[in-house]
Design a protein around this nucleic acid. Structure first.
Length: 158
DNA sequence: GCCAACGTTGGC
DNA sequence: GCCAACGTTGGC
C-alpha cells in the first residue's frame, strides 16, 4: 500500500468556504466545477484516505484554513451536464464525461490559518502553489506536508 | 480595480 | 500546428 498522497484544493471563500463545508450535514461535498485539465487530472488521482488542505483564494488573506479527507474517488461532474449550471459544458456528456469530482469530507478548521505569506518562506515556495498560481488542485510532496504539520504544531501551542 | 500569468480558442 | 486574441484566475 503506497503512502497516502496529499493535495491542496483552492476555493474562493465567497463562493464556498471552509465554514460552508463544515456546516453541511455530513461535512461532505463533491468537489465540482473544476474546468482545467491539469487540475482535473489531479482530481482523478485522488484516492480514498488522501489528505487535502483547504485553501482560501481570491480573498483578503489567502491561506490554508483547514483540512479534508478524500472519502470517494472522482465520479463524473454532474454540474457539467446541467444547462442551468454556470459550470455547464456541452462537450461533457454522461456517456463521455470530461470533468470529474471526488468526494471530500471536512475534518478540521484551523484555529490559526497558514497564510500564503507564511508559506512563501518555506519549501512550499517551490510548489505549484507559487509556481503556477492559477492551478486550483495541487499535489503536495511529503516534505511539504511535513512543513505544514510543523507550522500547525507551532500554531497550536502559540 | 488592476494587471501579470496562464490556458483556451479559432483562424489560417 | 502555429500563434494572436481573448478569457480567467488570483495576488496585490
Amino acid at each position: 500500500m503506497p503512502a497516502k498522497a496529499a493535495w491542496l484544493l483552492k476555493s474562493e471563500p465567497d463562493a464556498f468556504s471552509i465554514d460552508n463545508l463544515l456546516a453541511l450535514p455530513q461535512k461532505t461535498t463533491l468537489w465540482d466545477g473544476v474546468r482545467n485539465y491539469q487540475a482535473r487530472n489531479n482530481l482523478q488521482l485522488m484516492q480514498v484516505g488522501d489528505r487535502a488542505f483547504f485553501y482560501h483564494s481570491s480573498c483578503a488573506v489567502p491561506a490554508i484554513v483547514g483540512e479534508m479527507k478524500v472519502v470517494a474517488v472522482a465520479i463524473p461532474d454532474v454540474t457539467a451536464f446541467d444547462p442551468g449550471s454556470k459550470y455547464f459544458d456541452s462537450k461533457s456528456t454522461p456517456e463521455k464525461p470530461k470533468w470529474f469530482s471526488p468526494k471530500l469530507k471536512g475534518t478540521r478548521k484551523y484555529v490559526k490559518i497558514l497564510t500564503r505569506d507564511q508559506l512563501g518562506v518555506t519549501v512550499l515556495k517551490n510548489s505549484l502553489l507559487f509556481r503556477n498560481s492559477r492551478l486550483s488542485v495541487i499535489p503536495l510532496t511529503a516534505a511539504e506536508v511535513k512543513v505544514l504539520d510543523k507550522l500547525l504544531a507551532v500554531g497550536e501551542t502559540a
